[in-house]
């Protein structure tokens, strides 16, 4: 049994909130530079140029890449041999969000109620926290600030098993085409396949926040990822939907076993910043 202090969790979360919003992942920046050369549309090229310049300013000046510093989404893997001392895990995380968004000059974008009492909570809490108990005695915190524009372009579709992989591919490509410029392309497209209604939505979110460069471990799904990326980039939607050759930076697929009667499919899109950051305590 290992003890981890709740205060330590708060401190790490606070740091993650700031860093994930200031620092674009290095691999994303590299990919942006690469696709800028491929982009043929003048407006698209100008947009990618602005994105790269923006990301460099944010990193250097320690300011958020985007004013929408997102819903604070956490994936927590808690080792079953860990004891958290001095406080409740979710409180510790929310306190870290509160401090990180306040001290990091990040925008508070959460309304305390979705419809009837839509008032900003003022501190960007509560976070959305997905918790899994895993073997071992460490605690892994993955943080992904999720912007409204890209999140609004998500979907869950209960496909028929007979639709098969071709049905899935067509649905994904059409969905991303119809999303147009709204999710701030060039985007990272997360695709969840299988499980249940809620499981595949979660898979899609996990897929969307994987580092670009991820390939599905099953080579056949990896080929589907490649094909989807190519087809999405042939739609012509382009950077910010202004027309061009670069609509997505990556497509990531995550799968789960499935009921014999079902084929759930979910899509969750990340904007070009693909913000995420993790720490293992």
């Amino acid at each position: 049994m290992r003890e981890i202090d709740a205060q330590r969790i708060t401190d790490e979360v606070k740091r993650l909130c700031m860093e994930a919003n200031y620092d674009i992942p290095e691999e994303v920046l590299e990919l942006l530079r690469e696709v800028k050369e491929k982009e043929e549309s003048p407006a698209g090229k100008e947009v990618i140029r602005q994105i790269i310049e923006n990301d460099q300013i944010a990193r250097k000046e320690r300011v958020p890449i985007c004013q929408d510093t997102g819903f604070a989404v956490f994936f927590i893997e808690l080792g079953q041999d860990v004891h958290i001392a001095g406080g409740y895990l979710e409180d510790a995380i929310n306190e870290g969000v509160r401090q990180g968004y306040q001290e990091g000059y990040l925008r508070k974008s959460i309304d305390g109620d979705p419809v009837l009492h839509r008032v900003n909570t003022g501190d960007n809490t509560p976070a959305v926290i997905h918790l899994r108990i895993v073997p071992g005695e460490s605690l892994k915190i993955t943080f992904a600030p999720k912007g409204g524009g890209s999140e609004n372009m998500s979907t869950v579709k209960m496909m028929k098993p007979a639709d098969g992989i071709e049905g899935i591919k067509d649905f994904v490509v059409n969905w991303v085409r119809n999303a147009g410029g709204n999710p701030c392309p060039p985007s990272v497209v997360g695709v969840g396949i299988g499980g249940t209604f809620e499981k595949c939505a979660l898979l899609a979110k996990q897929a969307a926040i994987l580092p670009v460069g991820y390939k599905n471990p099953d080579p056949e799904y990896a080929r589907v990822e490649e094909e989807l990326l190519e087809r999405i980039n042939r739609t012509g939607i382009g950077p910010m939907g202004l027309g061009g050759r670069v609509t997505a930076l990556a497509v990531h697929i995550k799968t789960h076993p499935c009921h014999i009667a079902s084929l759930p499919l979910a899509i969750n899109i990340q904007c070009h910043a693909a913000r995420h950051k993790e720490v293992v305590i």
Partner: peptide, 13 residues
Amino acid sequence: FAATGGAGALIAK
């Protein structure tokens, strides 16, 4: 006019 989504730090300048 379209401004570049996500280019918040650049636009602030």
